[in-house]
Design a protein around this nucleic acid. Structure first.
Lengths: 225, 225
DNA sequence: CAAATATAATGAACATTGTTCATATTTTAA
DNA sequence: TTAAAATATGAACAATGTTCATTATATTTG
């Protein structure tokens, strides 16, 4: 049974969580201070400690919500494209676009230091399987249709994951590549290198470029601040 | 001409830099506070501001030194192996081992937020070309011997870079994979996937594993805390 | 060598962080 | 309505980066 106290407690938590999420999407982690969150939620800063162990705890619970949001964002961008490898590519691009639009969330997912990791296995898992979860349905489709060798799938998933995360890390954190178009060019090259080589439908797209030639991509453009 | 004042200033800077480097290698960025550094150097905390603009400035100048150290570390590990793709693989593994041994330096290289990035282009470049610089000689060797297609080199470099950085990021920051041996297994699989496919000396090493089988690797083991 | 001046080292002080805790306030129970 | 329990609050503490007036040292000058 759900007691009134439990409902009210959840509601209070929700106020702080919502405030934290708004700040994370806007200013990023640096904007999240216990006093800042409390003010936005309309409470005193010390009240937070009646509902959360510490500020890390508060930030941590936002992650699952954001993963959901990311999945919706990506699905929306990819639904129009043809199922199979094509849509797989769009899903990956959508995933990248999400974090380019919300750099603070990339920071939260991959860069944030969180004090005790021991009891947060579940949340960590949400992060680590974030991209895979979004692509899972499409991978299964590709396997069923014989578009990729089943034995290669785990390695390919890993390759995509590694490529995407580093590309975002370097672009958002180290300004490399320097421009958004170069960044997207790199992304396209790498996606094709991973997915076209292994795909049985060997179409060998023009992706040989030395990094100099700009590969045309029909990707959704995203505003960068 | 080098004035006495310049010499003394460089010496003073050196004391603070050395202290900062020691702390970075030991405790990582979280251990670097202006008071902590000053104490280790034997001066008052405020003295630092006579030689460095701020604490970021101090941390920043350590990066070039560490890149040198990393290069030596890697060269030492790879010198015994045969030139060509084989040594290339060892160089990459060595690069990974360096940051596994000094997680604080990985944080510094790839995760650290530094306030103003505008005037630090050179240092940023050291980071971005860090792995490439270490492998450059070997790449040239492979190209000259026709072991890799010259047109593919830039993409392969990028693939290695992205793979290595993410693998380290997830392992050091997100405990994924959970064990060092799994981590090294992943690394081996990915290196082979990138370098064996493209190398003309197509030897197709047994790297088909689904991530379950442990690939034997003769890699230098590294203590993990 | 002594005095004047320039240079450099220092800690007090301020703002901002996370966190704790005794107190004030509000809600619930009798 | 009153007593008790639950909850919201701001004062207080430690640690952070940074600034600045003051102290100490080094250099130059008479």
């Amino acid at each position: 049974m759900v007691t009134n106290k439990a409902i009210q407690e959840q509601r209070m938590k929700g106020y702080f969580i919502q405030a934290t999420k708004d700040i994370l999407k806007g200013e990023g982690l640096k904007g999240v201070s216990v006093r800042n969150v409390a003010q936005q939620a309309g409470y005193s800063y010390s009240t937070i400690y009646n509902y959360f162990k510490d500020v890390n705890d508060l930030v941590f619970v936002c992650i699952s919500d954001f993963q959901q949001e990311c999945a919706s964002f990506v699905a929306d961008q990819a639904q129009s494209s043809a199922p199979g490898v094509d849509r797989l590519k769009k899903l990956v691009v959508g995933y990248v676009n999400f974090f380019v639009e919300y750099p603070g969330l990339f920071e939260l997912f991959y860069l944030a230091k969180v004090g005790d990791f021991g009891h947060k296995e579940a949340t960590i898992n949400v992060i680590n399987s974030s991209l895979d979860a979004i692509c899972e349905k499409e991978w299964n489709y590709c396997i069923a249709r014989g578009m990729v060798k089943a034995a290669d799938v785990e390695r390919l998933k890993a390759q995509l994951r590694y490529m995407v995360i580093s590309l975002l890390l370097l672009y958002l954190n180290r300004r490399f590549p320097a421009s958004y178009s170069e960044f997207m060019n790199q992304l396209t090259i790498q996606i094709n290198a991973i997915l076209d080589n292994e795909a049985l439908s060997e179409q060998t797209v023009a992706n040989s470029g030395q990094g100099g030639t700009l590969v045309q991509n029909s990707l959704i453009s995203v505003n960068i601040k």
